[in-house]
């Protein structure tokens, strides 16, 4: 059991923080790649992402609240993982700020859809290992984000934004796949018949 807990923590961390690679320099990426970017449009892009999360989160929580078997949560996780994994690729293809706004909405939807699955896995993990408290988990997550922010800046500085986004895309696809498998293996309550 301890092994899968560690694997869960690692994949979850990768998933959460792979965007830590781009987050600190996202505004600079927009300025470099998208024509007509202003401070206002950058602020709006971030605002749209957060607003999407704020609006959709209660619905996703409600949807998976009484999900005893975990099947519904799994479907959310699949769709969320797909949207989140597509995001770096879509950033590369964006041509103007309207594209970026739409991608920000998709990214928000992806994160919100993945959250119930993560929470379910983390709840199970904390049941088995009391030391793996949410507090420690947050600490490890923040430290990983700090490290990845630094690596992201280095890659973008040395090899360019495109390299960084390709690297991000590969990492997030691997992490998303891993998390889906992990959920299928440990997140579902296969004995329960009630949906």
């Amino acid at each position: 059991m301890f092994r899968w807990l560690r694997a869960l923590a690692v994949s979850d961390m990768m998933y959460l923080t792979v965007f830590g690679l781009l987050a600190p320099i996202f505004a600079l990426f927009l300025r470099e790649r998208i024509p007509g970017v202003t401070l206002l449009t950058v602020g709006l892009a971030e605002g749209i992402y957060l607003l999407t999360i704020g609006i959709l989160r209660p619905f996703s929580q409600l949807y998976s609240k009484n999900d005893l078997t975990g099947w519904r949560t799994q479907h959310l996780l699949w769709f969320g993982s797909f949207f989140a994994a597509m995001t770096p690729f879509l950033y590369l293809m964006a041509r103007d700020m309207i594209d970026i706004y739409v991608i920000q909405i998709l990214y928000g939807v992806g994160i919100v859809f993945c959250e119930p699955g993560w929470s379910r896995l983390m709840d199970k993990a904390c049941q088995y290992r009391s030391f793996l408290s949410t507090e420690r988990y947050n600490t490890i997550g923040t430290l990983t984000a700090a490290g990845l922010a630094l690596i992201g800046g280095f890659i973008a500085d040395q090899y360019g934004m495109v390299t960084l986004l390709i690297y991000m895309n590969v990492t997030i696809v691997v992490a998303a796949g891993f998390l889906c498998v992990l959920y299928w293996r440990f997140g579902l309550n296969k004995n329960s018949t009630k949906a």
Partner: peptide, 23 residues
């Protein structure tokens, strides 16, 4: 959201790496 742009616009020696280092 605009902190990296603020650093690039106003600080001497701001690069992608140092902005990430700050974060």
């Amino acid at each position: 959201s605009i902190f990296p742009l603020f650093l690039m616009d106003t600080m001497a020696g701001a690069t992608l790496f140092t902005v990430s280092l700050a974060q």
